[in-house]
Amino acid sequence: MAGMGCAGIAGGIFLYSHDPTTTQWMPVCVFHEITGMYCPGCGSGRSVYALLHGDFLQAMRMNVLLYPMLLFAGLILWKPEIGKNSKVIWSVFFILIAYWVLRNIPFFPWNYL
């Protein structure tokens, strides 16, 4: 728990000082490199960078699903039994898959996801 907190804070400090679009020290999305498609996590680095610099709108534009998912992950840490409910897990699964497919549709309004 403390380790995860530390990792989160360290990641935050690192992201604050390194713009993901220019730095060489960011994890490259292997999936994006290979296929050229976006995965459900694409844009999360840029999004957190934007949020840490107070640009809320830009943060939302980079990855809309990131913050609802982070809130949900926090909820699971707080109440682990929710994270064991198979219905909940399958919902998360289908939301992620749907998001994955939709954000790869290259025209309005899907290109905003």
Partner: peptide, 19 residues
């Protein structure tokens, strides 16, 4: 169920392995 880790992996690590 490690769902927390799975979500973090999917959404933060830029890798579909979390799925």
């Amino acid at each position: 169920s490690y769902l927390f880790l799975a979500i973090i992996t999917t959404i933060l690590c830029c890798l579909p392995l979390g799925i």
